[in-house]
């Protein structure tokens, strides 16, 4: 029981710290790598919730595919984050807008509001006992019987995204 709290605390700490570093890291490649760490520790929390299928998907899709794609895009396009400090004097309103204080407040207020909603909402006390956990086999069976049409629509969506990305990035040739 204490081990559960400890491991959850460690994973949550890593998740939040790396998400914070995604915002504050100066180099964009570092931000991408911190994002991969955040995804990996969220996958650990999925393992704690005993959803090993989703944990594996999280590592494969997020930490593997999306991070690699973003790093490739950064490398291919020579996107550099050049922060030019403006020289002229700025008014207080402009400085507040540039510092992003409003965004910090919005993010914090949202997180606090959601936590408050969870705290006061009438979540049923009796959670389902641990017996009869879901296996990957059951997930697959449900996916290919009850959710066949959404599955095919998702495939079409991925195909369209692939074609669209190729068309958007292909160079014009005569």
């Amino acid at each position: 029981m204490t081990a559960q709290y400890l491991s959850f605390g460690a994973l949550a700490l890593v998740t939040l710290w790396s998400a914070y570093k995604v915002v504050t890291a100066r180099l964009i490649t570092h931000a991408a790598l911190w994002m991969a760490l955040s995804f990996t520790s969220v996958s650990g929390i999925f393992l704690m919730l005993q959803q090993e299928f989703i944990a594996a998907l999280q590592v494969l899709i997020y930490a593997g595919a999306i991070t690699t794609m973003i790093i490739f895009a950064i490398m291919l396009s020579s996107i550099r984050e050049i922060r030019v400090e403006p020289q002229e004097k700025r008014s207080i309103g402009q400085r507040i807008r540039a510092s992003g204080l409003l965004a910090v407040v919005v993010g914090l207020v949202f997180a606090a509001f959601m936590t408050y909603v969870y705290y006061v909402s009438e979540i049923p006390k009796e959670a389902v006992p641990d017996a009869g956990l879901l296996t990957v086999r059951q997930v697959g069976a449900t996916l290919f019987t009850r959710f066949t049409v959404p599955f095919e629509v998702a495939s079409i969506l991925l195909l369209l995204a692939m074609i669209g990305a190729i068309i958007l990035t292909a160079k014009e040739t005569e």
Binding site: L16, A19, V23, V106, G107, L108, F110, M114, Y118
Partner: peptide, 20 residues
């Protein structure tokens, strides 16, 4: 509340970053 709060905090950090 622990995992729910973590999800809300993660969303809040993402919102903060996307706005700044």
């Amino acid at each position: 509340y622990f995992p729910l709060g973590l999800g809300a905090l993660l969303f809040g950090i993402g919102l903060w970053g996307a706005l700044t």
